[in-house]
Design a protein around this nucleic acid. Structure first.
Length: 485
RNA sequence: GACCCCAUCGUCUAGCCCGGUCUAGGACACUGGCCUUUCACGCCGGCAACGCGGGUUCGAAUCCCGCUGGGGUCACCA
């Protein structure tokens, strides 16, 4: 039997980190087993479902490279893949349940149910629907109908015994049947609800393995019972540990950035993000943590997924992002950073080749210290802007020179005459100058760096000078001379 | 509260199933040093964990029980 898994987001918000992890594990499992990754959209809540959220979820999945084999946009033999378009399928299955006596009409109004819940709360009892509508007399029903009350449909859950299911990650999960009540599978207007449609879709889409978050554990018996009533064998389940925030509660908006696309905007690389996500709850061995995508596919296995929740640590993600950035070829990195360069105005979309080369070279000089693509403009700023304000320490570095103006003027002259104007020659020049004037080479270097960039840090000074070019360097040295006269 | 699940450094984790090789390994963060024209990278070193209590056993991070702690779920949301 070929493996079929599904990721089933509700378009009621953006794809968040936890959802992305779930999608990734499903995708990896499918790819590993040469199976099929289905994307199903659970848009049965017309109030909260929005097209723009769907778009954003699809964008996020695409960014991560988690393309689906079946689903919106690509089709497939088990569609439609939007639940809102599967009404006929639900209707048919609902009829079967009704015909089989697995359901009953419930005339309780939402307010009444809420009152019952409230009562239970007050009495400190666990609330469970008491099944009162299961034994309505014909008169009662007639009366309700006369009142124009429209019934919802409830599914009869077993009254006693143990409800259990096998979970690839947790083993056998058992819950006493008394913990469950008869739940609503169709609203008065006929629209079906989650536990029913989810179960129906999973079997009608021939899903073999349900890999989802641990928060669905308690729903599972409801779904397996629906399936059983319909005459289907339940698929295999695997409930993933939850992703946690720093306070160890389930990761949510409270914890700041949780939308996947926000991470893209902040300058994370999809490869790094995926690699990092894969390591949340799954591990390969005691040491390895770098995995190219095909390696993840090759090694991924549900039996190396652990049961306890994992805190999403942005710091470690950031570190990992930096390591991936360092591995990028210079032009690859520049291409990734292009949007930030454009926004900073350094490299407009229609920039000429020279500018592009210059920017890419500047970026290459700073590549080793980048952790986020978004840092690019700040890092290369001195290559595009003259120093306006000096860092305090940079100014001090200049003042360590007895006569900064003199030094800068002298160096400007020498730069003017230097041939060739490359890093090697520049280094020689500066060291020779330091030697002649009896000043420490470090002192001169630091002062020049300050004069050129206003900073105490940056790339190797000699390479920076070479790339900036004679003209800019001479100009900035002269300006610095004025400034420190 | 009820039910379900979980429990190794601050964090991600290896080890647990098949007890000894674990004075518990790796990584992030933090930190000392080296390298060096700075920052960073890199390298070397350090700090830091088996939640507690009982068992079982010659021996327990590993098996069992209890406790504690944490999380999840208790909708005409998904």
């Amino acid at each position: 039997m070929t493996v079929r898994v599904r990721f089933a987001p509700a378009p009621t918000g953006n794809l968040h980190v936890g959802g992305a992890r779930t999608a990734l594990f499903n995708w990896l499992f499918a790819r590993h087993h040469d199976g099929t990754f289905v994307l199903r959209v659970e848009d049965t809540d017309p109030e909260r479902s929005k097209g723009e959220y769907l778009d954003s979820i699809l964008d996020a999945l695409a960014w991560l490279g988690l393309y689906w084999d079946e689903g919106p946009g690509v089709g497939g033999d088990y569609g439609p893949y939007m639940q809102s378009a599967r009404g006929d399928i639900y209707r048919e299955h609902l009829d079967r349940l009704v015909a089989g006596g697995y359901t009953y009409d419930c005339y309780c109004k939402p307010e009444e149910l809420e009152a019952q819940r409230e009562e239970a709360r007050a009495g400190k009892r666990a609330y469970r629907y008491d099944g009162r509508c299961a034994k309505l007399t014909d008169d009662r029903v007639a009366a309700y109908e006369a009142e124009d009350r429209r019934p919802s449909v409830r599914f009869r859950m077993p009254r006693d015994g143990i409800l259990s299911f096998d979970d690839l990650i947790r083993g056998t999960v058992e819950v006493p049947a008394e913990e469950y009540d008869d739940f609503i599978i169709a609203r008065p207007d006929g629209t079906p609800t989650y536990n029913f449609v989810c179960a129906v879709d999973d079997v009608t889409m021939a899903v073999t393995h349900i890999i989802r978050g641990e928060d669905h554990v308690s729903n599972t018996p409801k779904q397996t019972e629906v399936l059983r009533a319909l005459g289907y064998d339940p698929p295999t389940y695997a409930h993933l540990p939850l992703l946690l925030g720093p306070d160890r509660s389930r990761l949510s908006k409270r914890h700041g950035a949780t939308s996947v696309l926000e991470y893209q905007k902040e300058g994370f690389l999809a490869v790094a993000f995926v690699n990092f996500l894969a390591l949340l709850g799954w591990s390969y061995d005691d040491a390895r943590e770098y995995f190219a995508r095909d390696e993840l596919v090759k090694y991924f296995s549900l039996d190396r997924v652990k049961k306890s929740g994992a805190v999403f640590d942005v710091e470690k993600l950031t570190w990992m992002n930096g390591t991936y950035i360092r591995e990028l070829p210079a032009h690859g990195l520049f291409d990734k950073c292009r949007p930030w360069f454009a926004r900073a105005g350094y490299v407009p979309g229609d920039a000429d080749e020279g500018t592009v080369e210059y920017a890419a070279s500047a970026l290459a000089l700073e590549q080793e210290k980048m952790k986020l693509l978004s840092e690019a403009p700040e890092l290369v700023k001195p290559f595009f802007e003259e120093p306006d304000e000096y860092e305090e320490k940079a100014e001090k570095n200049v003042r360590k020179l007895e006569d900064p103006a003199q030094v800068f003027a002298e160096l400007a002259d020498r730069f003017d005459a230097l041939e060739p104007f490359d890093a090697g020659a520049i280094e020689e020049l500066i060291r020779a100058y330091a030697e002649e004037s009896g000043v420490g080479a470090g002192k001169v270097i630091h002062a020049v760096r300050a004069a050129l960039s206003g900073r105490t840090w940056g790339p190797s000074l000699f390479e920076m000078v070479e790339l900036l070019g004679r003209e800019r360097c001479v100009k900035r040295l002269n300006e610095a001379g004025e400034r420190f006269k």
